[in-house]
Write a protein that binds this DNA or RNA. Structure first.
Lengths: 324, 324
DNA sequence: GTTTGACATGAAACGCGTACCATATTTTAT
DNA sequence: ATAAAATATGGTACGCGTTTCATGTCAAAC
């Protein structure tokens, strides 16, 4: 293995000059530059990024933590982040936490230990204190609401999303509206739940505790939720569902049982996934890829010490289809 | 910032001993170990991973390259890889290439430059020669067929997948079968195309050139393909479609136009994505997450110098639904 | 009583490139 | 003509932990 010292010797220059050539520093005589380049060829020199990173004190790597990579929301988020990373010449270390705080902490160490220059929280279950403390070690951007004042944020206004959904259903005359969300302990979950029940009180909507479901993520979960609802003596006339896949499962089950959508049950989903077009599901569109891109761009700007808005909200849009 | 030297001084031991404590080396006196641990607390010592990586000559990071992270196939592949990485205490550097050879080469440098210990090719467009050369710098596992003898492989037998699909359609009496694939230049694309046309000849099926489509990836693409087919004077009675989303788009368009599935057009997709259940699409199931897991496990084993099968094929399964 | 192996500890080399500081030579500006 | 920049190059400290080698102690084994 050849290194910078070997090249310097053979090209009869100093290691500093070799370093300058490698980094396209202008103050190098053309002849020496060429001599160095020639030796680099001859010795098949390959730089060692670990040495460079150690020396520079940074790695040009961002980290992102998500509960589940395969989930359409997060894979699109990562796609957006990846796009921005490519643009800024950063690499991306992706970690799957399964919403397990222990696994999260482990990944957080990558920031502490200087393996990544910045961290993007796709979703996190760690308490604010942990995040605050972590922020001493590097810049953090969160893609969901967070109580921590130390992290920059890019997120969709879930409160307004829920309001959009509920208002839309109310406008259609619904008074009995149920709610189905994913993880009730994630930032999104907490916000959605709170917003929903606030509105529900404000609008004096009917309520029954068995109109609430959480920890539902998949099409199968949706089918099961629908089954439960259809089996209830008094079912809601509409459901706000935090996830298009779950909503799709519900539509699927409704069709199976001959329950008419939207006449007997109106359904509104979130994310406007490709699937929602197929099943004609009304959905609140979240430009997920854009969120990811914005988050990574923001992180990049912050690291460059540029002044940028610390809290960014992304606007939602209701896509009306036949399920409402 | 405190480092190992500062700790050594304060704890009145050598740096070596500090290193031993940090790495749980057994030959350290209990008193000294505790003294060191105490100082580590006091100074808020945080190890520097770049230094560790440089010193050890490895990083415990795997790289994976895919064309598009948000694509369901690849996000699930990455999920599987991520799962195995978590198990083996590896991190995962994810790169999105958009099938651009230049971007690929850039990422390959992460292996050359020792930033990653091994590389997983989700899909690659680089010629065999490039991969062969790269293999001198580290272990590589490919998740698709590759001509390179230097890389280990984990892939589904796309030939058998196409055969499954065509046989199934032929059994149902179809003689006019069209084909729609994604990237015709990727490993998968090439194999599927070749296998399909081999069978088509072998079975003496009818053929028209306008029964072939490629570079189709999305639901919208599928709708457009269906439109084209339905506008043709002589359309196939069945289509083999390399991707469930595209197939879904076709079903969607067919329903819109009142074309009956499967009576007027049978459709068979690939991947058995959640969506295929919703639209009742017959699909060839590929256990994608499992492929990812197997690939990462394989890479891990190879790096540990364990003897493992170099070429692994994963079995497919036809999931019969109402579209055929 | 001596050999052998387990236990314990430290010095120094190593992995490798960057960046600051010092110095020297040319140019350009005044 | 002289001061001030620009150009060019090298020495060396620095970033930081691991690992090999040398050395030493103590207890068990023969």
């Amino acid at each position: 293995m050849s290194n910078i010292t070997a090249i310097a010797k053979r090209a009869k220059v100093s290691r500093t000059t070799v370093s300058r050539v490698l980094n396209n520093h202008p103050y190098v005589n053309t002849e020496k530059r060429e001599a160095v380049l020639k030796v680099i060829e001859e010795l098949n020199y390959v730089p060692n990024l670990n040495a460079i990173n150690l020396s520079r004190g940074r790695t040009n790597v961002f980290g992102v933590i998500v509960p589940k990579i395969g989930h359409p929301f997060f894979s699109n988020l990562i796609e957006g982040i990846g796009k921005a990373c490519n643009k800024h010449n950063y690499s991306l270390l992706v970690h799957q936490s399964n919403n397990d705080p222990k696994t999260e902490l482990e990944f957080f160490n990558k920031l502490k230990y200087k393996m990544i220059d910045g961290l993007i929280l796709g979703s996190s279950v760690s308490p604010t204190g942990v995040i605050d403390e972590l922020s001493h070690f590097g810049k953090i951007v969160s893609c969901e609401y967070s109580d921590s004042s130390k992290v920059a944020k890019v997120f969709v206004n879930h409160e307004s999303g829920i309001k959009m959904a509920v208002d839309h259903l109310k406008d259609q005359g619904h008074q009995e509206i149920g709610l189905c969300i994913g993880n009730p302990k994630s930032g999104v979950g907490i916000t959605r739940k709170k917003s929903f029940f606030n509105l529900q009180k404000e609008y004096r909507l009917s309520w029954r505790d068995d109109w609430y479901f959480d920890k539902r993520y998949t099409i199968e979960d949706g089918a099961e939720v629908a089954k439960t609802i259809f089996g209830q003596p008094s079912r809601p006339t509409a459901m706000v569902v935090g996830n298009d896949h779950v909503a799709t499962g519900m539509i699927y089950e409704a069709k199976k049982q001959g329950v008419k959508i939207p006449e007997e049950l109106a359904i509104i989903g979130f994310d406007n996934q490709p699937i929602s077009e197929v099943v004609e599901l009304t959905s609140i569109n979240q430009p997920i890829i854009e969120i990811g891109e914005t988050a990574a761009n923001l992180l990049h700007s912050i690291i460059q010490n540029q002044t940028v808005p610390f809290i960014n909200t992304i606007e939602l849009e209701l896509i009306k289809r036949k399920s409402t």
